[in-house]
Amino acid sequence: MNRTKGLRGWKARAGIAATAVASLGLALAAVGGAPAGASSSKPTITLATNSWEGSLSNNVVAQYVIEHDLHYTVNLLTIDEIPTWPAMASGKVSAVMEVWGHSPLYAQYVKGNHEVIDAGLEGPDGNIGWYVPTYLLKAHPELATWQGLKKDWKLFVTPQSSPKGEFLDGSPSYVTNDAALVNTLGLNLKVVYAGTEAAQLAQIERIYKAHGAVLFYWYTPQYINALYKFSEITLPPFTAACAKLATTKIDCAYPPYNLYKAMSAQLPKTAPAVASFIKRFHWTSDDQNAVGYDMAVKNMSQTAAAAAFVNSHKALVQSWLSGPDTKTLAPVAGT
């Protein structure tokens, strides 16, 4: 008796499901024809946004110009660095506006199977190095160069690195030689990975606000450099000989990174105007930092920050629409 009622309840449930499916199907049928036709002539452009702020700054400005001057719809896609490359190969990501090194991926996709095109230099030189807050240099001027760390490592001891001094690294996805450098330079430091740039920056900010000591991996261009005063520690100069050493033996500073753009090999066929624009896009660290600062510190919306930049840099933007392509330069091997 009871069971039959249970079964009827079960059937009622099936009824609900069937009705829901039917109504969704009906709606689907209604949708089917409408929007597909409109977008087929011009493909949607997808730009990859990687995990640092500069990547977003490039993209919001590029998006603004492509939408307003070239009249394509642009979609910004949040995605990690490595998956960006297979995505460009398949055409699901149209382009990425800033690449740091990644010569193995470059060899595989640009030189190897030609599924990705090198779209030329972006403008800013990426500079990676060892940094401390500038206020530390007042009491410890010797921290201007790496020799100062032979004595001053004690300043940086934390519970995490104890009994050594702490060298704070960020995301494992960023290019680093820090563990090798600590060894080859004979410093009493331990490399601690924050795991994400967000965690690293949170740590730096807390220590900075309390005027404490922190030694960390950092880079330019980065919008936060406009907010805090950091000083770079001079490492032994980068040489061609040093670049040839095995990654665990490296004993010199990071090479300068010629930040470059890359795009799907399909883009010049599907959206030639956009492909040309991406090849011409070129600006400076200061430009990028200004846009990043507007968004992150002044809390401006992406569109507002992009519009502010474009309206105050008309000549520059014009050169992206009709100027010459930017130079291409393969990334340094081993990065």
Partner: peptide, 12 residues
């Protein structure tokens, strides 16, 4: 992630 780091410092 950020609050945890802010209160307990980067590390284990």
């Amino acid at each position: 992630l950020i609050p945890v780091v802010v209160f307990f410092s980067v590390g284990n």
